[in-house]
Design a protein around this nucleic acid. Structure first.
Length: 570
RNA sequence: GAUUCCGUAGCUCAGCUGGUAGAGCAAUACACUUUUAAUGUAUGGGUCCAGGGUUCGAAUCCCUGCGGGAUCACCA
């Protein structure tokens, strides 16, 4: 990057950097800095006169002559620091205060401070600085949002594009954003602890798979050079976890980064995190109990309460949750009973409800459309929807009382699904037939159906899998609900975005029009302005921009005598 | 994919029916020894997203492109 592209303030900071080096101060020292306290420890456990060593970013500086206040921001928050000229510079030489502190430090610099804790007249806990060390120089000015006495934020850094692309800045200046990610980590920890306490084991399964299975979604495809085969990035980890149940574990779970090559919007990112857990000798009824206890536990761990606010809704994750069969749900909201209906009858019903259908849709898909259109959005409080039609659930066990249904539930919150669970299908012959049905659906044109048959998974089932219940939870969605964020981008550190274009800006060299004008003028050195314009044959706008551009580069000068405008090279 | 809104100083934003680009904070200089977003005075800082068009003249009007937001569609 050339200097010409730097802003005024960036150039100043680079000059400051040089001055520091000239004074023998290393702006990027290597040595460990012996921090003894965090800002929160000092503020929460105030001890008058305590000697502390702290470090962080200098985020505020207010000079008042021979004394100054500043604010240091560390991982926990901010603490005020007090610089007194004669404390820092006891002798004749006051340059450490006058020059280094006042002129060569900038907001955003990482600084280490040794000092003593005291309270100012206004009562603010403050560290009185005895000595300070520059730990890392900041060359770009940070946005500086400020909160006033009424809690109103001024100059907030809010542009989503800038915030997502430069999350490091977002995290530095927006403490509430940091809080979201602290909560996100608390959620993962709480869930992990809950599973571990129950005796289940965290495992890892492949991200690169030769058959993308376990869900209906478009995968990302890549290529392995040594094997010379296509590999897919996983869309789900279900089939691998079930193999491990076949292998004899009681319970296994994995926080799984999944990748789906589909649309992006405020609730969908190409990579997202799911949690899947499989527990042997259990069924979906047990899993419902387990799920509501899990979510209650997680809500408390994250927010300290089972209650959460999401937009206009107040949600309560306190167990137990309401349970409604899909059939009953559709009766409740449409008056239509799906039990025993043929594909044609269902298609007619959809049409009468104003739901768009086409010929590729089978019984399951049609029911799903009705539910999605008429029912789903109505469940605000956590609600289990149970007993899904068989066609929609190729990996789920047939219902013990009704062979057209499966033992499946989804957990709905605020009209969105956040969990999905089965009594897992473990009959290998049934499973093979369901896969084959899926292949037929895919051939019929249903792009949600799975077109691959995972033969190795079927082989595992043939050796035998104990009765098992499995649960999947969309972790991003769950944390959105727990932190009141309607956009998935807000709960991902680095949401996917179109790549930023760097270095595309033009340098100081002349553009085509400027060159044309310059070359013509170079022959004469000095010309009448209008004459030159005619010779170039440029449009008014192009001419105007070109001439202004040249003047800006300091190459030409226009002089006016009487009504005569003359242009000459400088 | 469709519709719609937005892109101006490091940050937040003004800028009317076209007429020399503005404010606050940040920066620079000077003064000030306990301040609470906000000390005073002075100063500097902009290819107004890019390219084209209309015009004597475009940040402003029109077209195209790029980037982003919102709504809808699709997708868990």
């Amino acid at each position: 990057m050339s200097l010409i592209e730097l802003s005024d303030q960036e150039i100043q900071r680079r000059e400051t950097l040089k001055k520091l080096r000239d004074l023998g101060i290393d702006p990027y020292p290597a040595a460990l800095y012996p921090v003894t306290h965090k800002s929160s420890e000092i503020k929460n456990n105030y001890k008058e006169g305590e000697k502390v060593v702290i470090a962080g970013r200098l985020m505020r500086r207010k000079v008042q002559g021979k004394a100054s206040f500043g604010e240091l921001q560390d991982a926990d928050g901010r603490i005020q620091v007090y610089f007194n000229r004669d404390e820092i510079c006891p002798g004749e030489d006051k340059s450490l205060y006058n020059d280094v502190f006042k002129k060569l430090l900038d907001l955003g610099d990482f600084v280490g401070v040794e000092g003593e804790v005291f309270k100012t007249q206004v009562g603010e806990t403050t560290v009185s600085v005895k000595n300070f060390t520059l730990l890392s120089k900041s060359l770009k000015p940070l946005p500086l949002p400020k909160t006033d006495a009424e809690g109103k934020v001024h100059d907030a850094f809010t542009d989503p594009e800038l915030r997502y692309r430069q999350r490091y800045v977002d995290l530095t200046v927006n403490p509430h954003v940091k809080e979201i990610f602290v909560k996100r980590t608390k959620l993962f920890t709480a869930m992990r602890n809950f599973f571990n306490d129950a005796g289940y084991m965290e495992v890892e399964t492949p991200v690169l798979q030769s058959i993308p299975g376990g869900a209906a979604a478009r995968p990302f495809i890549t290529h392995h050079n040594a094997l010379d085969i296509p590999l897919y990035m996983r869309i789900a980890n279900e089939l691998y976890l079930k193999r491990l149940i076949c292998g004899g574990f009681d319970g296994v779970y994995e926080f799984s980064k999944n990748f789906r090559n589909e649309g992006m919007d405020r609730t969908h990112n190409p990579e997202f995190t799911a949690m899947e857990i499989y527990v042997s000798y259990k069924d979906y009824n047990w899993m419902m109990d387990f799920t509501e206890r899990l979510l209650e536990h997680c809500a408390i761990a994250v927010n300290g309460t089972t209650e959460a606010t999401f937009g206009e809704h107040k949600i309560d994750f306190k167990a137990p949750y309401k349970r409604v069969t899909m059939r009953q749900s559709i009766i409740d909201f449409t008056g239509f009973d799906i039990k025993g209906k043929t594909e044609d009858e269902l298609r007619e019903a959809c049409k009468s409800m104003g739901i768009a259908v086409d010929d590729t849709m089978g019984v399951g898909k049609l029911i799903d459309e009705i539910f999605g259109e008429k029912c789903e959005g109505n469940y605000i409080q956590p609600t289990f929807i149970t007993d899904y039609p068989k066609e929609m659930s190729p990996l789920c066990k047939e219902h013990r009382e009704d062979p057209s249904l499966t033992e499946r539930f989804e957990l709905m919150v605020c009209g969105k699904e956040i969990a999905n669970a089965y009594s897992e299908l473990n009959d290998p012959i049934d499973q093979r037939e369901r896969f084959e049905d899926q292949v037929r659906l895919a051939q019929k044109g249903d792009d949600e159906a799975t077109e691959f048959i995972d033969q190795d998974f079927l082989r595992a089932l043939e050796y035998g899998m104990p009765p098992t219940s499995g649960l999947g939870i969309g972790m991003d969605r769950l944390i959105m609900f727990l932190t009141n964020n309607p956009a998935i981008q807000e709960v991902l550190f680095f949401p996917q975005m179109r790549p930023e274009v760097f270095g595309a800006k033009k340098g100081p060299e002349l553009n085509e029009n400027e060159k044309l004008i310059f070359d013509l003028l170079a022959k004469a050195q000095k010309m009448d302005l209008n004459e030159l314009k005619e010779q170039t044959g440029l449009s008014n706008k192009q001419w105007d921009k070109g001439v202004k551009g040249l003047a800006k580069h300091g190459l030409t000068k226009v002089t006016k005598e009487e009504d005569q405008l003359t242009i000459e090279l400088v």
